[in-house]
Amino acid sequence: MSGLDREVHIEVQDLTMAYGSFVIQRDLNFKVRRGDVFIIMGGSGCGKSTLLRHMVGLKEPARGKVYYEGVDFWSVEVKEREAMMRRFGILYQSGALWSSMTLAENIALPLEEYTDLSPSEVREVVSLKLSLVGLAGFEEFYPSEISGGMRKRAGLARAMALDPDILFFDEPSAGLDPISARRLDDLILELRESLGSTIVVVTHELASIFAIGTNSVFLDSETKTMIAGGDPRELLETSHDPKVRSFLTRDAPEERSD
């Protein structure tokens, strides 16, 4: 599985992202290999979530390409793109559980849509997924009845419903206490080990970055482009860019990092 010659799973080429004429980031170039835990980092508001939206098919690039296994994600037919998106699992920043459905129904929906499982089989798979994230027994709860950390984990269970090739996480540990955050990190690593999924994580939690990251890209909001990339631990040792260094070592008297 490991090794430098692992195949390139996701490639981003010359990506420019903009809302209307307001450019968020330009000229992004990076590759994610199969099995990587790829970290998208940078200060608040630099465009991390926006980059994720471009990678999962929610927002079309202003310029540039996103390739999955060599297939140009944004120039294929809508149907084909939807088929590719079905191989993604996404944990949104707010969990994004459908609030009018119970946890079980949330996780069951993708299964009912895209598999031929019988209702009782669906129920079994749902219970399995919930128990994987430590929520066994919460099937009949509504998202508003559980805590924020549990909602995140339930969102993860839904993201894993179809056994995705790639898991995307938007700030998984934001708003969680350190222990829950740590458990979520462990869970992410466990998933990569056991499912062999590629994982893309947006985060600015240093602990997570060093604990789980194998590759990364650092977005800067001032220059509006990426200013570093690579294994975060190597980056910490080799990068001379003051912004990257102060972000990764967290001593930034003159920088506002939040």
């Binding site: 088929a83 079905r86 949104y92 929906l109 849509e113 839904r158």
Partner: peptide
Amino acid sequence: GTMQVNEEIDALRTLGI
């Protein structure tokens, strides 16, 4: 609107629904 704010509609879209 609330579903939009909560990213619930995004979650539907990315599932291809």
